[in-house]
Amino acid sequence: MSIQHFRVALIPFFAAFCLPVFAHPETLVKVKDAEDQLGARVGYIELDLNSGKILESFRPEERFPMMSTFKVLLCGAVLSRVDAGQEQLGRRIHYSQNDLVEYSPVTEKHLTDGMTVRELCSAAITMSDNTAANLLLTTIGGPKELTAFLHNMGDHVTRLDRWEPELNEAIPNDERDTTMPAAMATTLRKLLTGELLTLASRQQLIDWMEADKVAGPLLRSALPAGWFIADKSGAGERGSRGIIAALGPDGKPSRIVVIYTTGSQATMDERNRQIAEIGASLIKHW
């Protein structure tokens, strides 16, 4: 067993022997301040990774656009098919120029040779490549099948209805392509620590998230040296922004954090800054 596999296998073990965790309302004060600064709703939840206990939450059962955070769930569904012998990570998928959609920095470079399922998941999570996500959605049967996968996990809230990039439209009061912070946090925890996926697939999923290259201005910008984070960000229309993450000190994750916002007129930089400040408060009061 590799060191990384050992780390993920012992996530519940280490967490069980940690000192009790206590909620700190100071972080919620910052979440509410972010709402004021952005002029928009902000949803927040913080779960203990081992027990699933909610440590703090704000608007945990209000719907927010998922945006690209759905790509972690998508690759979880792909990995479940791999575990069941219905898919192979090494299978190569070929596609054409007509398949390319807006923001496809990886797939646009491989029109000639195609990409493997493993490479597509890596591109979808680490670079948020939209064509990679659409190609992977095709392998599982489309958005409705991802929703069905989530329902089978016990998540009857999260739903995907459309493809990239239309799913980022974020129309107010439109339930399409949305989740709730509580539902997303619980589902992410199941994917990373539950028995739904094999140990190898859980490790692969967290490795992809740990290698995320496009979430630097968010929670990662607030992390002290030595902290662990595996995350996936999302951005959408109407001032929408979000991030889902597993993080913790001492090089291992111990909490799940989900943050979503929508309806702001603020710039992307300002949305990023507010999420980073929430992260800084979380870490300060850990």
Results as ranks from 00 to 15, higher is better:
residue 9 A to N: 09
residue 54 I to S: 08
residue 157 V to L: 10
residue 237 E to N: 14
residue 69 T to C: 06
residue 12 P to T: 12
residue 129 D to E: 01
residue 94 H to Q: 13
residue 193 T to Y: 15
residue 6 F to E: 06
residue 36 D to R: 15
residue 257 V to Q: 01
residue 250 D to A: 14
residue 109 K to V: 12
residue 180 M to K: 14
residue 245 A to M: 04
residue 189 R to Q: 14
residue 263 G to I: 04
residue 272 N to D: 09
residue 216 G to W: 08
residue 180 M to F: 11
residue 282 L to C: 11
residue 130 N to C: 05
residue 261 T to E: 06
residue 138 T to A: 15
residue 256 I to P: 00
residue 217 P to M: 14
residue 155 D to F: 01
residue 190 K to T: 14
residue 127 M to R: 09
residue 67 M to Y: 02
residue 188 L to Y: 08
residue 49 L to V: 13
residue 16 A to Q: 12
residue 153 M to D: 04
residue 279 G to S: 10
residue 165 P to L: 08
residue 178 T to H: 02
residue 95 Y to I: 11
residue 189 R to G: 12
residue 222 A to M: 12
residue 6 F to L: 11
residue 209 M to G: 03
residue 96 S to Q: 13
residue 283 I to P: 02
residue 66 M to W: 01
residue 209 M to T: 02
residue 234 G to Y: 02
residue 21 V to C: 15
residue 62 E to R: 06
residue 154 G to F: 04
residue 28 L to E: 06
residue 53 K to A: 14
residue 221 S to E: 10
residue 139 T to R: 11
residue 94 H to P: 09
residue 196 L to T: 15
residue 10 L to G: 08
residue 79 L to K: 00
residue 76 G to I: 05
residue 186 T to H: 13
residue 24 H to W: 09
residue 284 K to A: 13
residue 95 Y to F: 13
residue 284 K to Y: 15
residue 130 N to G: 05
residue 221 S to L: 10
residue 101 V to R: 08
residue 200 A to G: 14
residue 200 A to C: 10
residue 173 N to P: 07
residue 265 Q to P: 11
residue 117 V to W: 01
residue 115 M to D: 01
residue 89 L to Q: 05
residue 13 F to V: 11
residue 212 D to C: 04
residue 126 T to C: 11
residue 6 F to P: 07
residue 165 P to I: 08
residue 214 V to F: 05
residue 235 A to D: 02
residue 4 Q to G: 08
residue 96 S to I: 10
residue 67 M to G: 13
residue 146 L to V: 11
residue 247 L to F: 05
residue 110 H to Q: 09
residue 255 R to M: 05
residue 124 A to Q: 02
residue 262 T to A: 09
residue 171 I to A: 15
residue 152 N to Q: 15
residue 281 S to F: 15
residue 28 L to T: 09
residue 263 G to E: 06
residue 52 G to H: 06
residue 88 Q to L: 11
residue 18 C to P: 05
residue 236 G to W: 01
residue 166 E to H: 10
residue 182 A to H: 12
residue 191 L to G: 01
residue 116 T to L: 08
residue 248 G to Y: 01
residue 181 P to M: 02
residue 243 I to K: 00
residue 116 T to E: 10
residue 151 H to I: 10
residue 180 M to C: 14
residue 64 F to Y: 06
residue 202 R to E: 10
residue 225 A to M: 15
residue 68 S to M: 00
residue 89 L to W: 06
residue 254 S to C: 14
residue 70 F to Q: 05
residue 180 M to S: 15
residue 267 T to M: 11
residue 205 L to R: 00
residue 155 D to V: 01
residue 46 E to R: 04
residue 75 C to R: 00
residue 65 P to W: 01
residue 160 L to K: 02
residue 175 E to G: 10
residue 270 E to A: 12
residue 77 A to Q: 14
residue 169 E to V: 12
residue 43 G to K: 00
residue 220 R to M: 03
residue 99 D to E: 14
residue 111 L to P: 07
residue 65 P to E: 02
residue 138 T to C: 13
residue 165 P to G: 06
residue 180 M to P: 03
residue 77 A to G: 08
